[in-house]
Each structure stands twice: as C-alpha cells, then as structure tokens.
Simulated assay, not measured.
Amino acid sequence: MGETDGEVLAALDLRRDADLEIAYQRHAGELHRFATRHLRDAAAAADVVQEVFVRAWRHAARYDGAVASLRVWLFTIARNLVVDQVRRDRARPGRPTDPGVLGEVAERASRGSARSFSDDLVTAWFVEEALGRISVEQRVAIVETALRGRPYAEVAVELDVPVGTLRSRVFHGLRNLRAIMDDTGVPL
C-alpha cells in the first residue's frame, strides 16, 4: 500500500532543495490564486508566493506536521504576508487599494471590531471558497443581492427569473453556505 499525498507532504524537509521544490509544485498555484484574489495584483501575489517559500525554507525547523498540514502552514504564512501588504498599501497615501472584501475587512478593523483583521481575512477566504461549492444559480443570487446589495427585483429582471425564484435561490444558497462553513468550523 503506497503513501498518501498528505503523508508524502508531511515527510518533506523544506531545508532540502528537492523537498522545497515538491512543496512549491504542489502549492504555489493555489497560493498565487489566494494572494491574487485578495491583493488584486498578480505581480504582488507572485512576490507573496516567493516570500512564502523563502520563509518556509528559513523556518523549516518550526514546521510540525502533527500540528497542521503543510498546506495550512503555507497558507498561514501567505495570509500574514497578504495582511502585511494590505496594511502597507493603506499606509501609503495616494496608492490605490481595492475596496472589495479586504476594504470592508480593513474598515471593520479600523472601527475596533472584536475580531482581528487577519481573522476576518481568513473568514473572507473561506466564504469565497465555500461560494465555489454551491450551485452557480445560488452563488449568483447571493453575490448580487446579499453581497452587492442590489434589489431583488433588479437582479430578477437581469437573470430573467421571477423574484420568488431569486429569493428561493438566496434562501437555499445561504442555507447551503452555512452548512459548508459549519463543516469547516468557520462561523458565518
């Protein structure tokens, strides 16, 4: 019986070039998509991915596969780098930042929300991932009405469905989204 992918990744020693290359091949693409989604800048995301693996190599002795998977550890590093980048961008006057989910998260953080900025960032990432697991119809209905705040009647006309159908899609989509988030242990 062969080793599972998780067992192979847990056995990697990131101080060795060959093992670091394996980790890079397995996770760089996903890390880049994560960083691009939150930074809205592919070049900045590439810098984040490069720095993730530099830090993983430098601090390989700190990685404990019994505590978290390699993927979780790398995403934790990436999350911290993304948060730092967003804070740096906000500290530089005249530099545009995307007002999307990160802007809302940063705004809540500046108002002294009980949750930390990085907690909200991770939650936003999990919500985005969970949205990808529900049907397209439900996802579009939730994004347009609940997240973008558009009126049901306007969205229903655009989608060419009755308002009741749109409301049903939002209701069932939110129920499915909550179930997915509950399964991952992230409060919605």
Rank of each mutant, 00 (worst) to 15 (best):
G2F: 04
T4G: 15
A10H: 01
A10I: 11
L12E: 06
L12Y: 09
D17A: 09
A18M: 05
R26I: 08
H27N: 09
L31C: 02
H32V: 01
R33T: 00
F34G: 01
T36K: 05
L39I: 00
D41T: 08
A45T: 00
D47E: 09
V49K: 00
Q50E: 12
Q50F: 12
V52S: 11
F53S: 12
F53T: 01
H59N: 15
A60G: 03
G65S: 07
G65F: 01
A66L: 03
A66M: 04
V67L: 14
A68P: 11
R71M: 15
W73M: 12
F75Q: 05
A78P: 03
R79P: 06
N80Q: 10
D84Y: 04
D84M: 05
D84V: 11
Q85K: 11
Q85F: 13
V86M: 10
V86T: 11
A91Q: 15
P93S: 14
P93W: 15
P99H: 11
L102V: 09
G103E: 06
A109Q: 14
A109C: 13
S113V: 04
R115N: 11
F117T: 04
F117Q: 09
F117D: 09
D119L: 04
L121F: 04
T123Q: 06
A124P: 14
W125C: 03
W125V: 00
W125F: 08
G132P: 08
S135M: 12
Q138L: 11
R139A: 13
A141D: 14
I142Q: 13
E144Y: 02
E144S: 05
E144Q: 06
T145P: 12
T145L: 11
A146Q: 04
G149R: 09
R150S: 07
Y152A: 10
Y152T: 12
E154K: 14
V155N: 09
A156P: 11
A156C: 11
E158H: 15
L159V: 15
D160Q: 03
V161C: 06
V161P: 02
T165W: 01
R167M: 01
R169Q: 10
F171Q: 09
H172Q: 10
L174S: 14
L177F: 04
M181N: 04
T184K: 07
G185H: 06
G185E: 08
V186E: 10
P187N: 01
L188A: 07
